[in-house]
Write a protein that binds this DNA or RNA. Sequence first.
DNA 1: TTCTTTTATCTCAGCGCTAACATTATCTCT
DNA 2: AGAGATAATGTTAGCGCTGAGATAAAAGAA
Lengths: 332, 332
Amino acid sequence: MQAETPTLDDVARLAGVSANTASRVVRNKGSIAAATRERVHAAIDTLGYVPNRAAGSLASSSSMIIGVILPSLSNIVFPEVLRGIHAGLAGTPYQPMIGVTDYDLGKEQQLISSLLAWQPAAIITTGFDHTDSARRMLEGSGIRVGELMDIDGTPIDIAVGLSHRMAGKAMARRLIERGYTKVGYVGHDWTDDRRANARYLGLCEGLAEAGHTLAAEERGHDASSTRAGRAALAKLLAQDVKLDAVAFSNDDMAVGGFMHCLAGEISVPNELALMGFNGLEIGQSLPKPLSTILSNRFAIGKTAVELLLQAGRSSDPQIIDTGFSLLDGATT
Amino acid sequence: MQAETPTLDDVARLAGVSANTASRVVRNKGSIAAATRERVHAAIDTLGYVPNRAAGSLASSSSMIIGVILPSLSNIVFPEVLRGIHAGLAGTPYQPMIGVTDYDLGKEQQLISSLLAWQPAAIITTGFDHTDSARRMLEGSGIRVGELMDIDGTPIDIAVGLSHRMAGKAMARRLIERGYTKVGYVGHDWTDDRRANARYLGLCEGLAEAGHTLAAEERGHDASSTRAGRAALAKLLAQDVKLDAVAFSNDDMAVGGFMHCLAGEISVPNELALMGFNGLEIGQSLPKPLSTILSNRFAIGKTAVELLLQAGRSSDPQIIDTGFSLLDGATT
DNA sequence: TTCTTTTATCTCAGCGCTAACATTATCTCT
DNA sequence: AGAGATAATGTTAGCGCTGAGATAAAAGAA
């Protein structure tokens, strides 16, 4: 088909300018005469020139890559963050390069190292937990770093997210407000998920402030899923502690719990109130919309990208609280 | 912190070899004396050397990037394919660079162009529909190309997926088998989603083979979601055609339909049978597991990557059928 | 032993682009 | 009109790595 991929030199020759001028037109940098710009663009079109990013990156020691490190893809939450990142990147020449850690800090470190090999413009990861080595790499790289989802900590550069402790507390307050006092908790395995843990602690704190404590709890040994939520609620209720409400580690688990109630003919919220976290679409489509707390995943991703692309790293870290809101629902 | 990022030259100097030898050790290519290899590795460790991918790509005119183009991230299906891709890439030096088209072939073409600027090792996209220009770029690039999800077409290089027509037919057969004859259809807006369309056609074909036709249908104007499914089923039933079963365009829609039945006290499957497509976890956690067809998303992604990394592009295209299986469920 | 093959390494040029500086033409201000 | 600023372009030297071929040392074959 096409003989050879055309290079900037080919474009420059056809347009009758130097390679550097052509490069400046492509990058829209420096001052260029309108006529020259047009001729170069015409040459680009006729040749179908596409810049070689590797060469550009090498020469400038910086690339149009945004490294994105996510803990998981199994849960719809992170794809939604990714969607926000994409939205923020739309119309820019940046491309996301993604990695998945499975909540393993060692893998994260490895990913950071291999992403830095591309000299990305920025790296986006989650939370404040990193290995020492990973933190050093991120700090030393000088590039912009976004730590998403959480804001209860000290960011390397910027953090965008919400306070999971506060969200947990808000769950507690909501339940108390509605008159529930015998509150149980159902969680997935969050040994590696600091944020779920923070919500749990916030919940306990909120209950304590009202003079209560968790009446019972059940934590599975699996990742969060509707299946796991269903099973865990069954187990919790089998403990035979009298409960009037259950708080779940997230909506997936809560939806599972709702399914258990449906199957077992437990009336929600009369016999048992349910509360989740995340505000997933599925929870709002249940026969009774799930009472939950909306985390703004899409906004987190989008906001982070926009801020990261705005300017170079500033001296002091920045925290952006994207907040959360209570979804009233009908399960409490 | 670290003075300067160490280069291959630094490693070579410390190990007392030439840069090229060091490079060969890093890439594990050519024959190297065991002692040399060790010395180089030691040097790499002490310096904390990380290869500059941009330089490598430029010199070799090929990169360790796998371009991944997905139609959407809103539906859990594609993140699962991506998960499969990740799984297949684990332990290799390849990194996925992803783009999202929102089912827009123009955007796909643009993404292909900008991904090719990185000289990726392979490009993975979905389906057989591409603009002429996109197809030409993919063919002309000479790199390996994976077209995922569908197998009813002629691939550029390899296609990995399942026959959506056959899946639709299987839905029809299943419903007929169970004695349902007044079958309705609920779909999302699939003007840009050829595969949902193919399943619809397969369904009609399957019904026709048994001497039946679709008794009623309702197609929304939104993307698929539980909410949309719930609303669309309500609308379908309002048509006041006597139905004994409804086939949905996918599980999200079907779960929404199930919710409608729960809320409206329509007994499933006695009064109305429901059937979905995809085999999502949520469907299997309903009080009555959803009857559906399992598409092997994870396997599609993983298989594709494994095949693409195996060797260069062969002369003739290849089709890999990852198949589908019926999940019996309790809603038919 | 001498010639050939194999193994292990080195030298050198260059991938396609951009940063930095040099140069020329065009203004602006006194 | 001459000095200095500004705009528009050109020249040069790499960025850090890899491919191709050259070379030297070790091993086998005749």
